[in-house]
Design a protein around this nucleic acid. Structure first.
Length: 119
RNA sequence: CCAGUUGGUCGGGCAAUCGCUGUGACUUUGUCAUGGAGGAAAGUCCGGACUCUACGGAAACACGGUGCCGGGUAACGCCCGGCGGGGGCGACCCCAGGGAAAGUGCCACAGAAAGCAAACCGCCGCGCGCUAGUGCGGUAAGGGUGAAAGGGUGCGGUAAGAGCGCACCGCAAAAUUGGUAACAGUUUUGGCAAGGUAAACCCCACCGAGAGCAAAACCAAAUAGGGUUGGCGCGGUCUUUGACCGGUCUGUUUCCAGGCUAGCCAACCGGGUAGGUUGCAUGAGACAGUUAGCAAUGAUUGUCCAAGAUGAAUGGUUGCCACGUAUAGCUUUGCUAUGCCUUACAAAAUCCGGCUUACAGACCAACUGGCCUU
């Protein structure tokens, strides 16, 4: 797994597909690199430094566990929400797997309809 | 036993499994070993170390800061010990605590008056008047206003009063005693003058360059631009080397001297961006002892090396125990079961010394007051 570090990469991902869940928001955008990339964002609105760090760690552990589910040639960004602090870990795992699935199914269908619309 | 004061310590533990990161080793790209948040890491409010910039020295002025005395310290606006004032029965706590007789300003509302005093109601005397009262003068005891009204209490004194006089208290000055000093005590004298405000200007004493690790140093792509050298070429005239005449630069003018005088190509050089390395973890260091000191702290001996990330590591998940809490049940000093944001406040970012603020709860020591027993 590649880590996203540049501001540009995050801005690009924000314009891509989006899936909102209770504990987090998942964004995804195609990229040229074969290895999937992942970045984390936890804003100051969520809490103080201790809570933000904890959310980031849980999300990182989450993405490490489910690294097989991420598609190659894609960049992902996980935005932490307050509920990620206390939601059970197994539940977070399920919702992340579902969120990835949803993004890629809707992406394919939208690709087809989008192509049709452009014509 | 209850209530309290001060100082200090800790602020979950163990295990399994999957990871992150620093260091070391090696059969060198993976394995092993080992280290990995706090008392406030926080706020960024003071003081330093360190780095760069500026700077000949010194003084003055301006600006900012500090402000009882002595000590500690690398330094401080910090700490310790005293002094003075205030609070508490007490242990103890609190104080932005220099100067208001150098000057200027301000003192809302109320009140007659807010400051080299003045006089609203009063009180007293004299004149006028039958009385009610009124004119002039004296006075500041009483009333009323206010945060504050030109010492306080008592006696004398007086027309009424007043430091007008006296006693005590307060205040000031001088002498003297104790103390390093702040200051305290005593005596004498003075005569009641000197309201508050300096987190108003100000005066006095002392201190003070600026910016900060995104400091700074080094290595160093691509692109653009710069310099040096060489080649071709190079304002005008002469047949080339070159010479002369021009132009321009060396601050200006004259003289002398020297350099450069379109452009293109190649090689080399240095600055510098992305990026990387250092800075950067051995330090005003930690722990234990001895010793000087009332203490802060100093001296000294021994042992030890204890986080170093950079979209930012130090964790995710699970089990057991301890603690706390809520609910329910019971053979109600208590026990059992179940649940919990399984803990409070909060996470290093160059490093130290402080201050301030936040903090569920647990524990230790010394001391104070009260009750009971002996």
């Amino acid at each position: 797994m590649r880590r996203l570090k540049k501001r540009m990469q995050f801005l690009k991902a924000a314009r891509g597909q989006k899936a909102v869940r209770r504990g987090f928001v998942l964004q995804a955008v195609p990229c040229s690199q074969n290895e999937p990339g992942i970045g984390f964002t936890v804003t100051k609105r969520v809490g103080n430094a201790v809570q933000r760090n904890r959310i980031k760690r849980r999300l990182r552990a989450l993405s490490d566990d489910l690294s097989q589910n991420f598609h190659p040639n894609y960049d992902y960004v996980l935005i932490g929400r307050k509920e990620a602090l206390h939601e059970p870990f197994s539940q977070l795992q399920q919702s992340l797997a579902k969120a990835i699935k949803k993004i890629h199914t809707s992406d394919r269908s939208e690709g087809r309809t989008g192509a049709g619309k452009s014509k």
